[in-house]
Structures are given as C-alpha cells and as structure tokens.
C-alpha cells in the first residue's frame, strides 16, 4: 500500500519529509500519525465537527478532508504552531480562564477557529461568532463558556488597542 515516493509538507514553518506513505492518507492522519503532531483531533473524519481544523495558506480547513499529498505546495499551520514561544495565546488563555474547556477534545479545533475568526473580524457580533463557530462541535460545554472566551479576547484586544 505504501509508495516509494515521498513528499514534503511545510507545517508551522518547518519542512517535514513524508515517505513510505500511502497516497490516500488525509492530512489529519499524516499530521497525527506520521509527523508527531497529534494536536489536531479527529472526531468524525467527514468534515462535520471541526476538531481537525488547521490553516492551509491562511484558510481554516478540516484537515480530515484534505489529502496530505495535495498540500505539498502550501503553508500548513496547526495548533502546535500557536505556542512557538511557549506561552499561551490570548485565545488559549481565555479558553482556560473562562471555562471553555471540559474534555478538551474539541478545544484545539475551536482555538484555531476562534483565532481565524478574530484575525478576520476583530469585533464580531454575537451572530457572527455563532456562525463562525458553527462548524466546530463541542459536546461538553453547550458553547456558553466558549462564547464567553471569545468575548473576553475581543474585550482584551480592544482594551489593548485603545
């Protein structure tokens, strides 16, 4: 099933060599099982839950739906890349302090989705937040504390700017 071919993926700014891989493997599988980056989670593997959210060339995508080999030319960013300096991002910090984390399985995907949302829109309305996060299922929290975390980040960023 494996091929003799290999390819390279650029993940969080680092080139990773993928060899001996079966060509049908999803980006999620390759990240998790071949590159040692298990931060992205798989809860449905059909694009419904968002727990596998990564950025490909700045776009938030479900890595379970992307063939890894098709992402060779792209810049891939995963949750592991958010903490290059070892500290939590404001979004991560807010998830912890506002109680947005229970089991945590949805969390890496949601953290990525919230970063993406707030990068594009620094003061989203309540509905814009809900819409932006509606592709990320959380089964534990009922979303209330996740919205609170988003509000907190918006408020802190606004305070930091003004």
């Amino acid at each position: 099933m494996s091929t003799n071919e290999f390819y390279s993926l650029k993940v969080n700014g680092v080139d990773h060599h993928v060899s001996d891989a079966w060509i049908g493997e999803s980006l999620l599988y390759v990240l998790r099982e071949r590159l040692g980056l298990p931060g992205s989670k798989g809860a449905c593997e059909q694009g419904e839950c968002g727990s596998c959210t990564v950025f490909i060339d700045g776009a938030a995508v479900c890595s379970c739906l992307v063939m890894a080999a098709s992402a060779v030319e792209s810049e891939i960013a995963t949750v592991e890349g958010l903490n290059a300096d070892g500290t939590l991002t404001d979004v991560q910090e807010a998830f912890v302090t506002e109680g947005a984390v229970q089991c945590g399985f949805c969390t890496p995907g949601l953290v990525m989705a919230v970063h993406h949302l707030l990068d594009e829109n620094d003061s989203p309305s309540e509905l814009e937040v809900k819409e932006a996060l509606s592709g990320n299922i959380c089964r534990c929290t009922g979303y209330g504390r996740i919205f609170a975390a988003v509000d907190k980040v918006v408020a802190v960023r606004r305070g930091a700017l003004s």
Partner: peptide, 12 residues
C-alpha cells in the same frame, strides 16, 4: 489540564 488541552498537548 486546561493549558495542555488548549495547546493540543493533552494526550487523549
């Protein structure tokens, strides 16, 4: 475990 969970470091 919150910090590990938001970073994707928590081992499920």
């Amino acid at each position: 475990d919150g910090g590990a969970k938001v970073k994707g470091d928590f081992a499920f």
